[in-house]
Design a protein around this nucleic acid. Structure first.
Lengths: 333, 333
DNA sequence: TTGTATGCGTTATCAC
DNA sequence: GTGATAACGCATACAA
């Protein structure tokens, strides 16, 4: 493959001039510029980003570690991150942690070795030593969607507290009392936050949050299904099942359908996270929507600020309740 | 950040020895090994993959260019590619072409400059000059999901021809005659192939494929909705709408619902591509499932073979019909 | 405005 | 088994 030297030779100038043309430095004659461009064209020269990065200490690459690319929420997040990064001239390398700390660490290590200019992490459950190192090393780092306690790292996330309060109130107004919650992992900030908000909301609405009506899943479909099954097997099953994320809602839906139960008559359903197809389920599913695109964009902007050594504040965006018909709402059409 | 020299100094050996330990070369004493590892630990040394790549001419990185990360089919594909690549010690950089040739080219260029060891492309519509260059340059390249005509590049894809024949036959057996097809872009191999298969299947089943019943969308939701609308506005609307991919099926569903039409009584629906939530729509959607994970895995394996300069054959896997109830099938429970 | 020369962090080729 | 040192391809300080 042609190198900068070949281009220089072909154009009859020095490598320095070629380099200057390529990085459009102002100090270069129009004539040289033209010759170089012609040579680049003729030789099909592609600058070697690896060599350039070694020299400049910058890869123009961002790392993004997400929980699960198959989760539509993360897919939207990833897409927004990629769009915003590309607009700023960066390429993003996505690592799929699959919600496993050791896989998260694998990607942290790999991305660090590849010298990404900055790292966006949706941290899995635990603070791993590697992530701690990252923080101490002080490289550009922003947490996305989730935070880790006790770490001084800016984060970009949604807060569902108010929406959860509204949801519980909405459900109570519909006449239901026994609401069960498929919570997320206790070790995840999002899991903890949603559980706490649910408990608070129940209390605020004068409803009893029975212990057997709250169980933590792992944000994956299978756990949602298993927990829904246990709820439905209870001597006094809940009137409403509220799933802590869209995948667990899908699992709960699977279980409800498998039992031939009707929504909302036999059991009502609501979900944290809104996804495109919720509209098409019968009945359409009442859900809490997170501003995923906005989160992705803001996270990239924050990270770019950090890369330029500017201080950034954490950002928290509100999630919002989307009322449909899976909780027994009366048709309004 | 600590470099290999620092490690060498700290361990009291030469950089050559450190390098040998890190790449566990056999020719190094146990003693040196221990000292180096201790130094690595103490200095929190992270090898610089950029420098290493410059020297070794290998990045252990694969490029993957897909049509749209928000399309569940591509998400599954990407996930499988990533899993298989990681197992082989490679990191994958995903580029989202968003079905736009110029954005595809942006990523081809970027990935080439970053010197990925191999490229997996789900080609958008056109043969761009850049892709042509790629082929001529002869770097490891395999097409995934789609092919480009006249290019000698191995590809890994699914063939839906038989499944489409089965679907049309199935629909005819259900008593329907007027079947409309929301086709994919004529410029995409998948679009052409599915359209041709549909037309053939209609003929083979003694059904008339009316011209106004076949229209090409762009594999995105909005086009599916628009085309479904035009079908339904026809003086004699079709009895069945068959969408060429899952996103266009979602769009068609939107339109059908917006008109207050019932499935399958007012109009039946079927989709190429099967996705998890099709089961939960009322009624569950009859669809053609592609072996997406398998495609992703096989593509990576093929690419790794190419990277090792071994010849590879293209692979074609059959898609299969999944009968549910959106075409008026009688309940079998 | 242009060219020469040095170094980025690593691996690999030699000698020892 | 080990160490010195020359590349790898590029950007840039400095000289011209």
């Amino acid at each position: 493959m042609a190198g900068i030297k070949d281009v220089a030779a072909h154009a009859g100038v020095s490598v320095a001039t070629v380099s200057r043309v390529l990085n459009d430095s102002p100090k270069v004659s129009q004539e040289a510029r033209t010759k170089v461009h012609a040579a680049v064209e003729a030789l099909r020269y592609r600058p070697n980003a690896v060599a350039r990065s070694l020299r400049t200490e910058a890869t123009h690459t961002l790392g993004l570690i997400i929980g699960d690319i198959l989760n539509p929420f993360f897919a939207v997040l990833a897409r927004a991150v990629e769009d915003e990064a590309r607009a700023a001239g960066y390429t993003v390398v996505i690592g799929n942690a699959d919600e496993r700390p050791e896989q998260q660490d694998h990607y942290v290590r790999t991305l660090l070795e590849h010298r990404v200019d900055g790292l966006l992490i949706c941290p899995t459950a635990e603070i791993t030593p590697l992530v701690e190192d990252c923080v101490e090393a002080g490289g550009p780092l922003v947490f996305l969607d989730r935070t880790l306690p006790g770490l001084n790292v800016p984060s970009v996330r949604a807060d569902g507290t108010r929406a959860i309060h509204e949801l519980v109130e909405h459900i109570r107004d519909l006449g239901h009392r026994r609401i069960a919650f498929i919570s997320g992992p206790e070790l995840l900030s999002t899991g903890r936050e949603r559980t706490q908000a649910f408990l608070d909301a129940m209390r605020a609405n004068g409803l009893e949050a029975r212990e057997e009506y709250v169980e933590a899943g792992d944000f994956q479909e299978a756990s949602g299904r298993g927990i829904a099954a246990r709820f439905l097997d209870l001597p006094e099953p809940p009137e409403v099942i509220f799933a802590g994320d869209n995948l667990m809602a899908l699992g709960a839906l699977d279980e409800i359908r498998a039992r031939g139960l009707r929504i909302p008559d036999d059991v009502a359903l609501a979900s944290f996270d809104d996804v495109a197809w919720f509209v098409h389920v019968d009945p359409p599913i009442t859900a809490i929507a997170q501003p995923a695109e906005e989160l992705g964009r803001r996270a990239v902007r924050a990270l770019l600020e950090r890369i330029q050594h500017r201080p950034v504040e954490s950002v928290v965006l509100p999630a919002r309740l989307v009322i449909r018909r899976s909780c027994g709402e009366t048709e309004t059409r």
